[in-house]
Write a protein that binds this DNA or RNA. Sequence first.
DNA 1: TCTGGGGTCCTAGGACCC
DNA 2: TCTGGGGTCCTAGGACCC
Length: 420
Amino acid sequence: MAFATAATVLHADLDAFYASVEQLLDPALRRRPIAVGGGVVLAASYEARSYGVAAGMPAWRARQLCPGLAFVAGHFGDYQRLGDEVMDILGSFTPFVERVSIDEAFLDVAGALRLFGPPATIAVAIRRRVRAEVGLPLSIGVARTKHLAKVASQVAKPDGVVVVAPEAEHEFLAGLPVGLIWGVGPVMQARLAAAGIRTIGELAAAPGAALDQLLGRALGGKVAALAANVDPRQIGPARPASSMGAQAALGRRRATPELVRSTLGYLCDRVAGRLRAAQRAGRTVTVRVRFPGMRSVTRSASVAMPVCATLTLTEIATGLAAAALADHRGEHELTLLAVSVSHLVVPTMQLELPLERRPSGRPQGPGSRSTDAARWGLDRSVDAVRARFGPASVGYAAVVFSEDPRVPEAFRELAQRHPS
DNA sequence: TCTGGGGTCCTAGGACCC
DNA sequence: TCTGGGGTCCTAGGACCC
């Protein structure tokens, strides 16, 4: 049998991760419907899910569905620690582990069969160890490709294993809902349902041209390939990020210049600091403004010199936000502001010029080479002080926003390491 | 009572160049 | 007289993922 035709790909996915950790840490929460979060549900236990409670749901709606729901503030440091412990266990079976998020990873065990037995045996052993050593439920899908393994782990939940033998793939997929395909969400699902397509089998039988019509050319082709069981993705290290951003939900606040200025100051400080820490700068800055009712607009601008200085980024972002608001004068309230930097490059030597050697004389506008270089020097000093004495030890003007955070800083730290 | 934070990818129209 | 096709970049919006 050829190497590529064996079912040696595992997808390991911790069940209701945040909620399971809370139930592990506090026995009083076990077997009860709980939600992690505050204004919004970040994660729901399976007991809560049986009432219809789901991640991303506003808290009031979750309480409506499940009156006995217990809300728990997250223990974000523990999520990181326990997630790492599980990844260490996975890594003890094979070095070919691709971590996808804090609670999920692909493994290729093709080279581990001699040592640990067939893939299904390895999956059972992994689950047993994670349960015994960490105390968390883990589901695993085993198949020939990443996509199939991922679908299998979803089918295996909660707390199970599903193995898809190569000769049984077609039969396995045929009856499953199209929503299990990676990239098919609620909108696509509804669009397909309107065309009478609900299962992956029906999708596979549909003509390619019809799929392109329904889903667009790129997704149509991708979905057809997946439904037909072609998946070229290999297990390997994640690519470096192509953008970096930060956002802040504001509740429902009057769109005052002071609110916009202070919030953007906070967000740009975060983003620019992360860019510098990663030794990156970006050519395109995007600002998103969200109004009540989840209506949002974006404004973006590309600049010649890649940006990573806090003040330069703040000036550009402020201008973009002002343009967006000027185009929507009827809006008097905001619910969110976001800043993102993309088209990332490694900063050039120009930016590393020491402060005292910068060209002087003519006044310099934002984005000009030497202004950004000078500011970068200042930023590096700030970064160094913060590295020693903490993020709050030094900074720019007082940040009003940070006095009333909607989410704990620890959650931002976690989300920035692992989107979840 | 109206919803977190951090990302990727795709589409479509327009500007601009050769 | 005022026409063609291809490529690239930019911007805005949106679906989707964890």
